[in-house]
Design a protein around this nucleic acid. Structure first.
Length: 228
DNA sequence: GCGACAG
DNA sequence: ATCTTGTCGC
């Protein structure tokens, strides 16, 4: 069933080829079930970047109650190069996903989806790798331009690159730096914006990503699954 | 050639 | 991403 196998290349040149080939597998439309479980995915580093730590938090939707969490550590195998983040973080994410006992209907990833130079940011690459619905929720801009954004919570404007809409610049909280939402895989931009909006509480980041971020920065890691 | 550059 | 305390503002 899985017609895509994720691998870490040994050079930026080959990495670019992999992205070029994988981008064609991204499905920019709604092909997801009603969301009952949403997962937040984030990655952190330890020991001077030699260790990559992935954290996943699964919550009920739309109640946003935490159902389970998973953490995985792994030696860092790829450097940080803008535009090639997935090769550095996905290995640990895949490991953390192996220990999940639930099957999330949707994944919110820290980083870009198709709002990427070659339209294959980490959220899209992960989505294709596991063939599950994903949304990119980045805290800063990688590529694209946009019109001025309203200051009120909920305001958003299209993110454009080379004349095409690659995402949405979204205000998750009034007068706070915006979020950059983009299609990851199997989700339309409209649905992406709606689902992220429904995961917001009192913080800038949606709960799934906010909790995963907190977990990736926390100490410990032996314990894989907490919660139910 | 000169910037820009997710995490 | 990570290193780091208190502090200004809603």
């Amino acid at each position: 069933m899985s017609r895509y196998s994720f691998t870490v290349p040994d050079s930026i040149e080959s990495a670019r080829e992999i992205q070029q080939q994988a981008r064609s597998l991204v499905i920019p439309e709604d092909r997801l079930d009603p969301v009952g479980l949403v997962a937040g995915v984030d990655v952190g580093f330890e020991e001077n970047n030699t260790i990559t730590k992935a954290a996943i938090v699964v919550l009920n939707f739309p109640s946003l109650e935490v159902v389970e969490t998973s953490i995985a550590r792994m030696p860092t195998g790829f450097p940080y190069v803008p535009g090639f983040l997935s090769f550095r973080e996905i290995p640990a994410i895949l490991e953390a996903l192996e220990h999940l006992k639930t099957n999330p209907d949707l994944y919110l990833c820290d980083g870009q989806g198709i709002a990427h130079p070659r339209r294959l940011g980490i959220a899209s690459h992960l989505g294709v790798a596991i063939d599950r619905p994903t949304i990119g929720v980045a805290k800063s801009l990688l590529v694209g331009k946009h019109a001025p954004l309203g200051e009120e919570k909920g305001a958003w404007t299209p993110l454009i690159d080379k004349k095409e809409t690659i995402g949405a610049v979204f205000r998750s909280r009034t007068r706070v730096k915006p979020l950059y939402i983009s299609i990851g895989h199997r989700v339309s931009l409209e649905t992406a914006i709606d689902r992220v909006s429904r995961c917001l509480t009192k913080y800038r980041l949606p709960e799934p990503t906010r909790l995963a971020d907190k977990l990736s920065k926390k100490e410990g890691g032996e314990v894989r699954n907490l919660g139910t």
